[in-house]
Design a protein around this nucleic acid. Structure first.
Lengths: 240, 240
DNA sequence: GATTGATAGATTGTCAGACAATTGGAGCAT
DNA sequence: ATGCTCCAATTGTCTGACAATCTATCAATC
């Protein structure tokens, strides 16, 4: 769980809360490393020598070690005893499993949206969905990335479940090394936009099963893209 | 991810692997604390003062701190900045969400069993299912706990997915504080045994959807038990 | 008497430095 | 090539320290 986020979603009392950005250095370190890992600054399989990271981030070794324990538990790094941390590398097999997990959890997320989203949540979700669809149609990679992030923020806000959000973000982070940025399955964009709209529609219609189903389909189809890339790159073998 | 468990589920080569019990003290500490947390040695909401734990386990503070970071990421403790670690307390709301997650993930687990289980896996699963059913019928609490553990070991082995196992165990650990040990919904045992057998049957029939459905139903019904307990105990309020 | 403010104590956050244990690999011998 | 020995690189773990921050106690004020 992300160290202490205590936003009681009471619905009432809209934010007199002071967001403490981060009070501890460690949280910043973890955030920094996590970002670096998901953004590919460290390559899968690469060793992360503690002292090097200390110097790069200018913090002490105990701090780095604590941060690494956390990232290990999140599945982003692997701590080989007496050999040190290594950027976890996913096999296609593991990626497949994670996608399947993501699909069912995201289905549950959509289900929760149906149950819990307020009118405001829905309005925002609609807006963000359409923005993402637009970005997809424009095939503007930068805009797609940003819109996607905003879309998911809205989706998670609408489902009002910290647990679902937590696990989806975690799985997503673990899969990040697998995101394609070059290969494009022909017609995937058209298909994807239709599916996004289907999710939105089902949620707005308050149809739980349809929403869950639509969300799952979206993820499973998105995965196909990956399969293709894996094949293109020589099936992502374990040994470098 | 549980610090480096590298059992390539090749299916072939049944364990020439030498299980290194634990090469580092930290792993033992984490295991110990995790066990203590799930077994209720520490009560939800209780503070875990670092130095106290150091003395109790006879290890140094850095080690305890690393262990706590990991348990934090697993959702078992909460690290309040400048106040220290607290045993995470679940609200009924959070427990509900986790049960829903567990249901869909366990559904996926059953689905994977259908896809991947070998004949040996199935034989063991059948044996363990029947043993659990027996224990349930005998209403022998100790035996039920042991059989259940073995049942899940077999189920996870049969699904051949480290990710699914990882997340299910984690969610299960987080929910442990919520397991009832006293209240019994009348007829639940009969219902539960029937559902367990239904799961087994669906897997043996190689019917993915039925297996997934049966597993989900089992969890959702098991949760009802919890609802009852929560009500009985005054709905598990947040403030002590 | 209740609220506010201030002081002290407890605990965490972070660092530096040290040393033993283990691993991986280089080099040597067979 | 194969196997062995030894060494360098890193990690695993500890001790001790001190600043930052929180909690609670107690005094001061209205």
């Amino acid at each position: 769980m992300p160290t202490s986020s205590r936003e009681q979603h009471t619905g009432i009392q809209p934010s007199l809360i002071i967001e403490r950005v981060t009070s501890t250095l460690r949280e910043q370190v973890v955030a920094r490393l996590r970002a670096a890992l998901t953004e590919g600054v460290f390559r899968p399989g690469e060793r992360m020598v503690e002292r090097d990271i200390c110097e790069r981030l200018n913090v002490s070794r105990p701090l780095i070690r604590e941060a690494l324990r956390q990232l290990d538990a999140e599945g982003l790094v692997e701590l080989v005893p007496h050999r040190g941390p290594v950027v976890r590398r996913l096999t296609t097999e593991e990626a497949t499993e994670l996608y399947d997990l993501m699909a069912v959890v995201e289905g549950e997320c959509a289900r929760y949206c149906v149950r819990r989203a307020t009118a405001d949540d829905l309005a925002l979700l609609r807006k963000r969905t359409l923005a993402l669809v637009e970005a997809l149609r424009a095939r503007d990679r930068g805009r797609i990335v940003k819109s996607k992030k905003l879309y998911y923020d809205a989706l998670f806000a609408a489902c009002h479940s910290a647990s679902i959000e937590f696990y989806l973000r975690q799985i997503s982070a673990r899969l990040s090394q697998f995101w394609s940025s070059s290969v494009q399955v022909p017609g995937r964009i058209e298909e994807g936009t239709a599916e996004l709209l289907a999710i939105l529609d089902a949620i707005e219609r308050r149809d739980e099963n349809a929403a869950s189903e639509a969300a799952q389909i979206f993820i499973r189809h998105a995965r196909r893209q990956q399969d293709l890339r894996a094949i293109a790159e020589g099936s992502h073998r374990d040994a470098v």
